[in-house]
Structure formats: structure tokens, C-alpha cells
């Protein structure tokens, strides 16, 4: 059930992202690429595991192969 609720949430958030992106573009124009990395919501994609632990992506790829 919870998974089913993720679809409308993802849909709404995706469309909200389109609105926010227009706001940033209108504010910065073509120079938007200059500060896109410093936007308040920009974070690293994945948190890193503690030192010594394998990276999750490599583990996942290895398991897949």
C-alpha cells in the first residue's frame, strides 16, 4: 500500500521540480549552470558508507554479475 502511494507522490514532486527549475532559470538566465551546484537542495546522491565498508554500488554490481 505504501509503495502504491509513492507513485502519486513521485508524480507530484516531479512536476513541482519542473516549476522550481523554471524559477531558478528565470532568476539566473543562461548563467544558471554557474550556481546550480550551490542550490540549497543540491546534495550528494548517496551517503558514503563508513570507512572500511564496501561501497553499495560496487556491492550491488558484483551481486548482479
Amino acid at each position: 500500500m505504501k509503495n502504491a502511494l509513492r507513485i502519486p507522490y513521485a508524480f507530484v514532486l516531479m512536476n513541482w521540480a519542473a516549476v522550481v527549475s523554471l524559477y531558478y532559470f528565470l532568476r539566473r538566465g543562461n548563467d544558471i549552470g554557474q550556481d546550480i551546484w550551490t542550490m540549497p537542495f543540491h546534495t550528494h546522491t548517496h551517503s558514503e558508507p563508513p570507512q572500511g565498508e564496501d561501497k553499495p554500488l560496487w556491492t550491488a554490481v558484483r551481486q548482479l554479475n
Partner: peptide, 15 residues
């Protein structure tokens, strides 16, 4: 995190 990535991509489409 995905939202941030998405905003960046869509802003890129305007650019």
C-alpha cells in the same frame, strides 16, 4: 536527493 537532481536536469532543459 532525487528532487534536487531533477530540478537541475529540468533547469538544464530550459538552458
Amino acid at each position: 536527493v532525487e528532487f534536487g537532481r531533477k530540478v537541475r536536469t529540468l533547469a538544464g532543459n530550459y538552458q
